[in-house]
Write a protein that binds this DNA or RNA. Sequence first.
DNA 1: AATATATGTCAAGTTTATTTTACATTTTTT
DNA 2: AAAAAATGTAAAATAAACTTGACATATATT
Lengths: 66, 66
Amino acid sequence: MKNNLRIERAIKNITQADLAELIKVSRQTINTIESNRYVPSAVLALKIAKVFGKPVEEIFELEDSD
Amino acid sequence: MKNNLRIERAIKNITQADLAELIKVSRQTINTIESNRYVPSAVLALKIAKVFGKPVEEIFELEDSD
DNA sequence: AATATATGTCAAGTTTATTTTACATTTTTT
DNA sequence: AAAAAATGTAAAATAAACTTGACATATATT
């Protein structure tokens, strides 16, 4: 699964730590999601999408490998 | 997090086992997601939404408790 | 160039998702 | 009413998410 966190953060000009605080997870959780080291739960995905004001599908995209 | 799996399955007229096979998980996984006993991964949520042809947000909804 | 801020990553630990097997109950079909 | 199909659940095992703390590197600020 791909993600656009880096781009969306850049658009909103917020850091990984900022995003982590907004959705109440650790900074490492954001970092590892952003760098594709693990897949977030649907709750986290919904919260992240909400922060960026976009649908989940615009931020997380399935790949053939999924 | 709430979900509309039961309704969406009814609309498409498919069983839990059918849905499970479509997205390659066990039937129990579908059952436990549907009965809110656990939260699926973002990959599963995306796949389920894709099966029903609707955005993730229309199938899984954040609650105040999330 | 020095300092501060942001990011990458690692290891160890806890919690939660997911699988498999199995059985009981409910609902649908005949 | 009987049989078949669908659903609910439970226990045990494994995999994966998430946390905390810590440190190294990279990027931005002064």
